[in-house]
Computed example of a mutant assay.
Amino acid sequence: MSRLDQEERELLEAFETGELKRAPHAENIQQRHQKYAEAMFKKDARINIRLSSKDLRGLQKKALAEGIPYQTLVTSILHKYVEGRLHEER
């Protein structure tokens, strides 16, 4: 467990000694968030776009560096933009 930082080691120790307790209604909260995640990542529409081969190669390189398929990266970028969490730097 040497890869854990100090805070992680303290949390693990508290868990192992039984000091940590589940939050009330944790099961319900977990199920609700699971449904949110499933709905958010449900892919039920298809689009086709044209972009430059240079931009496609750039997306593929970034995705490779992140360890994800480039289509997933594009989907993530679009989702963040639509949700207002991706802004252009000026």
Rank of each mutant, 00 (worst) to 15 (best):
M1I: 14
S2Q: 14
R3S: 11
R3W: 08
D5H: 14
Q6C: 06
E7K: 07
E10L: 07
E13G: 06
E16T: 07
E16G: 04
T17R: 12
G18M: 06
G18T: 03
E19Y: 08
L20H: 07
K21W: 03
R22N: 14
A23H: 15
A23T: 14
P24C: 03
H25Q: 14
H25K: 13
A26N: 11
I29S: 11
Q30M: 09
Q31K: 13
Q31E: 15
Q31V: 15
Q31L: 15
R32I: 08
H33E: 15
H33K: 10
H33F: 04
H33R: 13
Q34W: 11
Q34T: 05
K35F: 06
Y36G: 04
A37G: 03
A37V: 15
A39Q: 05
M40Y: 11
M40H: 14
K42V: 03
K43Q: 12
K43E: 13
A45Q: 12
R46K: 04
I47H: 01
N48M: 01
I49M: 02
L51D: 01
K54L: 11
D55C: 12
D55L: 10
L56R: 07
L56I: 15
L56E: 10
R57A: 11
R57P: 03
G58N: 09
G58H: 11
L59E: 01
Q60T: 04
Q60L: 08
K62G: 02
A63G: 08
L64N: 12
A65P: 00
E66R: 08
E66A: 09
I68K: 10
I68L: 12
I68V: 13
I68H: 10
Q71L: 13
Q71N: 06
Q71T: 06
T72W: 01
L73Q: 02
L73E: 02
L73T: 02
L73P: 01
V74L: 13
V74W: 01
S76D: 04
S76P: 00
I77P: 02
I77Q: 05
H79M: 07
H79N: 04
K80I: 00
K80A: 11
Y81T: 01
Y81L: 02
V82S: 01
E83D: 11
E83I: 05
G84Y: 05
L86E: 07
H87A: 09
E88H: 06
E88W: 10
E89F: 09
E89V: 12
E89N: 02
E89P: 00
R90W: 11
R90I: 01
